[in-house]
């Protein structure tokens, strides 16, 4: 389980996170929603150890990670897979080499095993045969799927998705969501996803948390969130502007 307590972060005078409390149960897909610029990606970057909070704690299976450095933090990251918003594929490598990279660098596996697992990972995201292409030669949706394949090829316990469907058409959004749910059923990883895709996310989430003005405004099952009486949540789901906006 990931347990976040009182997470605060400011950039200069701008307070982005004002005391975030959230629990992500093991094996679930938890999706964080909220307005653009509301700190969702900043929150995610704290979970993956790319930012340090001003105060507050993040515990991964009981281990507090916000003060970890170097190898201790790397040991936690070994359990992670991360899909970045733009894919973050290494543009000097082919898609196949991108997927193979964490295997070659982190796992002691033979070249044949790497090739087999790369082909399998690409097949799982519906991209069998694109291994020889470079990221610049494929579409945005394909790049995101290659990024998912790269994040999952090492079979991580926890996978973070930073807006994996941003900028894609509705068909591709559903395709990516299907890939994520299929892989989740197969590997049973814990997933934390930041997304704007309402109402599509309600079909794949086990839990939904809404981040609003630096705090978790509501958290619950998709049904609970959709039935929420919290006006901030209700307005956001209906796509209506805030009163403060």
């Amino acid at each position: 389980m990931i347990a976040v307590r009182g997470l605060r972060k400011a950039f200069g005078s701008q307070q982005v996170l004002r005391g975030v409390d959230l629990e992500v149960p093991t094996g679930t897909i938890t999706i964080i929603i909220g307005r653009s610029g509301g700190g969702k990606s900043v929150f995610l970057r704290h979970l993956i150890g790319l930012l340090r909070p001003d105060s507050g704690t993040i515990a991964v299976d009981g281990m507090e990670i916000t003060r970890l450095r170097g190898r201790a933090l790397d040991a936690v990251r070994e359990r992670y897979g991360v899909v970045f918003q733009g894919g973050a594929l290494f543009d000097s490598m082919t898609c196949g080499d991108n997927v193979a990279f964490p295997l070659r660098e982190k796992k002691k596996v033979t070249a044949d095993e790497v090739a087999r697992r790369v082909e399998e990972a690409l097949e799982q995201v519906g991209l069998a045969g694109v291994g020889r292409k470079y990221p610049a030669e494929i579409s945005g949706g394909m790049r995101k799927r290659v990024a998912i394949a790269r994040a999952l090829v090492t079979e991580p316990e926890i996978v973070f998705f930073d807006e994996p469907t941003t900028g894609l058409d509705p068909v591709l959004v559903n395709a990516i969501h299907s890939v994520i749910t299929d892989l989740h059923q197969k590997f049973h990883f814990t997933a934390v996803m930041v997304s704007h895709e309402i109402p599509e996310i309600f079909r794949i989430a086990d839990r939904v948390a809404m981040l609003h003005e630096g705090r978790i405004a509501a958290v619950g099952t998709p049904e609970e969130i959709q039935a929420s009486a919290n006006p901030v949540v209700a307005r956001f789901i209906r796509g209506e502007p805030d009163e403060s906006a």
């Binding site: 993956i48 150890g49 790319l50 790397d74 040991a75 990251r77 070994e78 992670y80 991360v82 970045f84 918003q85 733009g86 973050a88 594929l89 290494f90 543009d91 990279f101 964490p102 660098e105 982190k106």
Partner: peptide, 13 residues
């Protein structure tokens, strides 16, 4: 800026 360095970092590399 394309988060490739962050990708290396979160791979524990």
């Amino acid at each position: 800026i394309t988060e490739q360095i962050d990708a290396l970092t979160v791979m524990a590399l």
